[in-house]
Write a protein that binds this DNA or RNA. Structure first.
Lengths: 224, 224
DNA sequence: CAAAAAAGTCAAGATTCGGTCAAGTCCTCC
DNA sequence: GGAGGACTTGACCGAATCTTGACTTTTTTG
């Protein structure tokens, strides 16, 4: 299967060069020369994004956040340099990487290939979710905030697990109930309300946020 | 999109009954009354298979294996009972499920619907529409303009979703009402006027345009 | 140009939904 | 067999949303 790569940089010369090179390597490429164009191009649902975070007239961090909110693929940053501050700001999260300018084309292709391989492997069985200080480990069924563990009951964790592995998507209570209790479970999906309350309470207490958002009239959604 | 379901059982009465019922639910059905027929029918590339593993003259396990080697869709087993040994033998793998005989038709349809939904989710989890700076995400039910979210209520978003997935087409209020509220909904399609007003208001405020166009005497249309 | 028809606006009442709580049941581990 | 935690249930309340109907504006048509 051919991978789709979205290239975002303000310099047309550079995006074209990269696009030509990557097409040559067998990738399908999309380019965008600004923040707005980048967001539009997300509709192609790329497998990987090459992103210049130092584009003029663009707030790199919030563009990056927008991208992450809408697609779940690795982002490789093209940048003059990454400072410690950048890392703290959350530019780099789990699946991401950066390449400092100037760079050679072989370096770019090598990194891309490595990321796609890793992504491929981990997508099917990702067991660890990290999001802004919160660490959810599906294998050991534990949740940590900073160094401190937050304990959840079975049902509570099941709900978190389902939501977090489908982060960003909205599920109504029926679907959630079905997913956690099983297809043939009978009972009132209203229980979810109570469990969600408990989960939120614990998360709020420990982290100051609630993570699970209500979409009124529709259902719940895990917010990264 | 109509899903294709292959029904495999040696009892013609049963396959016919299931086929009739599922067609009624809007599925496209194919039937096979033996192992050989089943393998031939795989050519239709079904989205889900209902399979009796206790057919006479047939080794259920190897038939099942053959099927899996050729198509990658969930299989729901129809069986008298599943023993622990069956599970060990590998009848049940990741995406699969079983229904024990005797079963009711509602149970079958419920299971099928659930499996198809799950399958759908893993196949293409993000449904994104980008149009002129506007980013509409159907999975998370969010709408962004530049970096800023525009929030819509359930009905409002439902209307946007319908119009945007059928962008360019004109729908009269009756049709829109039917599409969003459901076929059997009773009520006045006049509500649409009010919801459209709210949608336009929010869009106008955020983006400076209205996107939903009135075709006088006919209906509404989403303009990119 | 005036009347009729269609579409848009507005405010208020009706309705639905989600959060919360308290109480009851079930289960497990001493 | 009892204590404690986990899971459910049902009722209630307030808030968000939906709907309605009267009214205004715009467009079409005779």
């Amino acid at each position: 299967m051919a991978y789709k790569i979205l290239i975002v940089d303000d310099e047309v010369m550079l995006t074209d060069l990269l696009a030509a090179h990557l097409q040559n390597e067998g990738y399908i490429t999309y380019t965008a020369n600004g923040a707005e164009a980048a967001l539009q191009q997300l509709a192609c649902v790329p497998d990987l994004i090459l992103l210049d975070i130092n584009m003029p007239d663009t707030d790199g961090l919030s563009l990056c956040k927008m991208i992450r909110d809408n697609v779940a693929c690795p982002i490789v940053f093209l940048t003059a340099r990454i400072t410690e501050q950048d890392k703290v700001n959350g530019f780099l999260t789990g699946g991401d990487d950066y390449i400092t300018k100037p760079f050679g084309l072989p370096e770019v292709t090598a990194r891309i290939a490595a990321h796609l391989r890793r992504d491929e492997r981990s997508r099917s069985s990702q067991k660890l979710f990290a999001a802004g200080g919160l660490l959810v480990n599906l294998s050991s069924r534990t949740v940590f905030w900073q160094q401190r563990e937050i304990s959840f009951s079975k049902r509570e964790f099941d709900i978190i697990e389902f939501l977090i592995t489908n982060a960003g998507q909205v599920f109504d209570r029926e679907r959630l109930y079905e997913a956690v209790w099983g297809l043939d479970a009978e009972g009132d999906a209203g229980v979810i309300k109570e469990h969600v309350r408990k989960i939120r309470q614990k998360l709020q207490e420990a982290t100051g946020r609630t993570y699970i958002e209500t979409v009124w009239g529709v259902g719940y959604r895990w917010n990264r």
